[in-house]
Amino acid sequence: MGLLSKRDAALLTDPLADNNPITIQVLGICSALAITAELKASIVMAVSVLFVLGLGNVVISLMRNIIPSKIRIIVQLIVVATLVIIVDLVLKAFAYELSKTLSVFVGLIITNCIIMGRFEAFALGNGPWRAFLDGIGNAVGYGVILIAVGFFRELLGSGTLLGFKVLGDPIEKTGLYAIGYENNGFMLLSPMALIVVGILIWIQRSRNTSLIEEN
């Protein structure tokens, strides 16, 4: 018997693979397009969503019996916006450098469909502990895809990883560039994020054919 019951463990592991928020539920695509041109930005976004979704799911779950159903979406929006703004303000006051890197993500986190989706689909109907696990699971599932997309886009688009020139210097013509390799500038543009996600979906479904819908 592990730390978690089987049912609880499934909450964590399902979103990583067979119920991945991006590749299966196709949620959170907007931010996957917007910020994956760089690996670092992908990682920052993944960690931010992990934090907000874990905490937000718990808060919504605790409030689930008092939230009026007619305005529940507005309540969810306010909870996530409040959480994000509090974090933003505290960082601005005590970790200014970090807050400058994160400020771009504030708007993207608030409008992330995965967050609203998990609040609506899970936290409103489950206890706080399970909601927390669900939040963490989905955020990690989201983050894994984001980081994978960021990895390929930065590597093929800029020839760097986390800013390090892993393939050599394109201007000085060292490393791979010495034998005629060129960066693919197209990888930096948003459409390529969609294509990379599409390829990931393809790989995932070809390995697990039960995921393919019947027409």
Partner: peptide, 23 residues
């Protein structure tokens, strides 16, 4: 009881007040 209009209004007012003053 959380479906009634009165409750919904009350909830909205209190929430706005709490969140607004907190921020």
């Amino acid at each position: 009881r959380t479906d009634s209009n009165g409750y919904t209004m009350m909830f909205a007012v209190i929430m706005v007040f709490v969140v607004g003053s907190l921020l």
